[in-house]
Amino acid sequence: MRRYFLAPLVLAALLVVLLLRPELMTPLLRLLAEPGQDLIYDRKPLMTLALWHLALVGAAGLVATVIGLALGILVTRPGGAEFMTLARMASNLGQTFPPIAVLAVAVPLLGFGFEPTFLALCVYGLLPVFETTVAGLRGVSAPVREAARGMGLSGVQRLWRVELPLAMPVILTGIRLSTVINIGTATIGSTVGAVGLGEVIVAGLQSGNTAFVAQGAALVALMAICAETALRGLGRLADSGALTRA
């Protein structure tokens, strides 16, 4: 257990310390800023920005995961098989849309701020979850599926007791990808007024303050890497069977 989560815990601790005491960064930031510029972004507490950032990613991730899972399950059931081509094509097409484009198209529909970013995150985060749900469920070996059917497990029992547990490691990979992409997209969301750590970078770019850019970038990168390693650890835990073995 510990070996899977040591790195993310250390990174998370570092992130929390930097968020609560950003002045620890001043010696480094002083090297970057022009004389007279502010070193630490102080229009809002960094911790507040980070929590908003996480809340946005978390809420959208939850929606994306639920919808992606549901769609992935639907198209792998016998009754939904005919939607498979449509879903895959839509998903492939979706991946050619850059996050910034999804964001840009959402703004005229929903205005600036939280809503367009949330929508973009839901849409964009859905694709990896859907793709890996399909891949994971299809990856359950034919003999295992045949055995489950032959022993008289009902459709729902097969899904819950056999197929989903066996697909879980792959699905977790999708959730990880989705989360990482969304932390990045949420950062871009600050260009359309979403509250988050991206705000610090955007403010730095607009005012030519490299210190702001650097601290925002470092904190966002740390958050993303932290989330990535934590979810990767969770995936390893699932791979080892600890999550799904009954």
Partner: peptide, 23 residues
């Protein structure tokens, strides 16, 4: 009912198909 029928008949398949996540 198909499921009930199958529960009453033992079935050994080609390729065994043991559930890898269960003991």
């Amino acid at each position: 009912a198909p499921d009930a029928l199958r529960r009453g008949i033992g079935y050994v398949i080609q390729g065994v198909g043991l559930f890898p996540h269960w003991t």
